Computed example of a mutant assay.
Amino acid sequence: MAQGRGVPLPFDRPQQFVERIIHHVEKAIVGKRDSIETAVIAFLCGGHLLLEDVPGVGKTMLVRALAQTVGASFKRIQCTPDLLPSDVTGVSVYNQQTGQFEYRPGPVMANVLLADEMNRASPKTQSALLEAMEEKQVTVDGETYRLPEPFMLLATQNPVEHEGTYPLPEAQLDRFLLKIRLGYPEERHEVEMLGRLQERSPLAGVKAVLLREEWARLQLETRLVHIDDTLKQYIVRLTSATRTHPDIALGASPRASYALMRTAQAKAFCSGRAYVVPDDVKSMAVSTIAHRLVLQPEARYTGKSAESVMAHLLAAVPVPAAQAAAGGSL
């Protein structure tokens, strides 16, 4: 049985579960293993995931495939400007027989919630998800209802068509653990995709490989991955550097430091290690932090992006010397 900080862990070979999830998702999404692994890292951390890319590259397909690999409840919201907060959180309905109001749950009452084209929902509706994302609960007519455990929001948005959209505010972006882009597939992968689509729906081959209880246990096990204090200091130096960089108007919050620690732990976990190395932190820094940054107007005008500034900081901030790992392979 795997060990972490002397605590017995529930799976003998936990990375086999991770590999099985990735394998099944790859039946629906061709040639995007790195993006799939990043999405699985969000699953392991129990964090929320934002997928931003042009239409037709498989954002919704990836989310649905991930949800199907876990035997948990799944709900989908198609965000539009006329979507109301109650369409997300649910409503209280008066029952004439009992003479009392009864709560009718909305789609947010699920383990996995897909908010498709989230930036098309109005700010009022977007804000209805803030409490759910941070506190894992919703408040309807003064009553608070806990969300199922685990709970995860996967949202998509289109960065090209801005007509009729409402950009997500910084407070909401900061609540997304990771942001990824799929990009266009290579020609050989696109040809393979056409062959699969000719025969059947790509989701037909995706099966549930993990029970909800096993998903929760994997999340717990990920938290047990050891991270040395020197790496925690490295994480804080990275986020602190964003707060003083001349090209950045709004730097990363302490929530970003915590998020980077968690994603680095999950990266190590996916690699079959019970400890974090500097490369785990560096590989997750851009997708964990860049979407939380607000650039100065001058930096945007010169063609800089949050990702390029973050890459510059990764090259500038010294990496700590390797420390003896606590534990070993999972």
Rank of each mutant, 00 (worst) to 15 (best):
H23Y: 03
C270I: 10
V57Q: 04
A72Y: 03
E134Q: 15
H291R: 08
A110C: 09
E135K: 08
P8V: 12
E187I: 14
G106L: 10
P55W: 02
R292H: 13
A204S: 14
S257P: 12
Q198Y: 09
K179W: 01
I180E: 02
M109W: 00
A290Q: 08
K75Q: 15
T244Y: 10
G31K: 02
Y275Q: 11
W215V: 02
K59A: 10
V294L: 14
R104K: 15
S122M: 05
V140I: 11
E190Y: 04
A322L: 15
V138E: 06
G106T: 08
E117Y: 02
N111W: 04
S86A: 15
D280V: 13
D82K: 08
D53M: 09
G56V: 06
I41Q: 02
D174F: 02
V63L: 12
M284P: 05
A299E: 09
F176N: 01
R64F: 00
I41K: 03
G164N: 07
L49S: 07
G195V: 00
K304G: 05
G71M: 07
D34N: 05
E131D: 06
N119V: 06
A171D: 06
F176H: 03
D34A: 14
P202K: 06
L313V: 10
C270W: 01
E190A: 14
G183E: 04
I289G: 10
F43G: 01
S329H: 14
H291Q: 08
V25W: 04
L260H: 09
Y301D: 13
E213R: 11
T302P: 01
E221Y: 05
Y275V: 12
E192L: 13
V112G: 00
S240P: 02
E307Q: 15
K59V: 08
T239C: 13
H312K: 14
